[in-house]
């Protein structure tokens, strides 16, 4: 089974499923060129009405015969999965839909404790799909509460302090990047676009294969020459076995210091013991990340 945790939502899927579309608030999974699962989510303020959401879905998909499901129509495994979610505090309402080509089963989910509202649906092609859908639904988790929020995607996992919000991400062959942003003033969360104003960027990267990238170059030189957020020459890099670290001021001047706009940078890049990859965590911005928090973040970042 493969675990995916993304922007506060987690599900565990069969190994053969792979994400074919990743959004800030949604995931689509494929198996053998076929869509198998879609999850969308959002945080809603105040009350949440399942009926309203099902109605909205019905309006948006007039070609699909969409309807709520009564208990006796629901597959047993699906009911068991819903019960498990209910025990963990997540309310759910199931629906089924059918078009000329496809059919599926899904559920609208709501966690009153955090306000998370999610829509999860599975494309059903055969009986096995029903079982896999139920086990995947049962694995649905809301990670939005807590001091640190985990994420896990494409063989990587880490934990970030809850104040950091997902900013951007890209998964290109050989180079994965996941960026988080924490504004200096928590009140600005959601008001200003992510990355604007004073705050801290937190960048996770994975480069591979390390054996090729570091063939004729030291890890410190490679980092300076290649990485987008590499430390400037003025910041010293310390090397310890397969790891490099830095911590310093990337840009400063009298004016910047006066306006509290000096740019701090702190980073660690290391070669993994297994997996032939280079992992890096960089925190940069006008607010330095405390050493202890940065160390915890680095320690949590690993290949799965």
């Amino acid at each position: 089974m493969a675990e995916f945790i993304w922007n506060g939502v987690g599900i565990t899927t069969p190994d053969e499923w792979e994400p074919s579309a990743i959004e800030r608030d949604g995931l689509v999974f494929e198996n053998r060129d076929r869509h198998v699962c879609e999850v969308k989510w959002n945080v809603v303020q105040g009350s949440f009405s399942f009926d309203k959401h099902i109605k909205r879905l019905t309006k948006g998909h007039k070609n699909a015969a969409l309807s709520g499901v009564t208990e006796d129509e629901t597959p047993q495994a699906w009911t068991a999965a819903l019960n498990r979610l209910t025990q963990s505090g997540i309310r759910a309402k199931s629906f089924i839909w059918k078009t000329e080509i496809n059919q599926g089963i899904g559920a609208a989910l709501h966690n009153p404790a955090t306000g998370l509202a999610a829509l999860i649906q599975f494309f059903i092609h055969n009986e096995q799909d029903e079982t896999e859908a139920a086990s995947t639904l049962a694995s649905f988790r809301d990670y939005a509460s807590g001091k640190t929020i985990p994420w896990a995607m494409f063989g990587l996992k880490a934990r970030v302090p809850a104040e950091f919000k997902l900013e951007t991400f890209s998964f290109k062959p050989g180079h994965y990047t996941i960026k988080f942003w924490r504004p200096k003033n928590a009140k600005n969360t959601g008001r200003l676009p992510a990355g604007k104003g004073p705050g801290t960027h937190l960048v996770f990267e994975r480069f591979a294969p390390a054996s090729v990238l570091l063939k004729r170059i030291s890890i410190a030189d490679w980092a300076r020459q290649t990485m987008e957020n590499a430390p400037p020459e003025s910041v010293e890099i310390s090397t310890d076995a397969n790891t490099i670290y830095w911590n310093g001021t990337a840009r400063t001047s009298l004016l910047r210091r006066t306006l509290q706009r000096a740019i701090y940078t702190q980073g660690a890049v290391w070669v993994t013991d297994n997996g032939n990859a280079l992992l890096s965590v960089i925190a940069h911005g006008t607010v330095p990340a405390p050493d202890a928090i940065f160390t915890d973040i680095c320690e949590s970042y690993e290949l799965v």
């Binding site: 062959p173 591979a208 032939n276």
Partner: peptide, 15 residues
């Protein structure tokens, strides 16, 4: 050989 993700290898090789 390079211990990368299967999908990643697939994309690199096909490109």
């Amino acid at each position: 050989h390079y211990q990368v993700q299967p999908r990643e290898a697939e994309l690199s090789v096909t490109a």
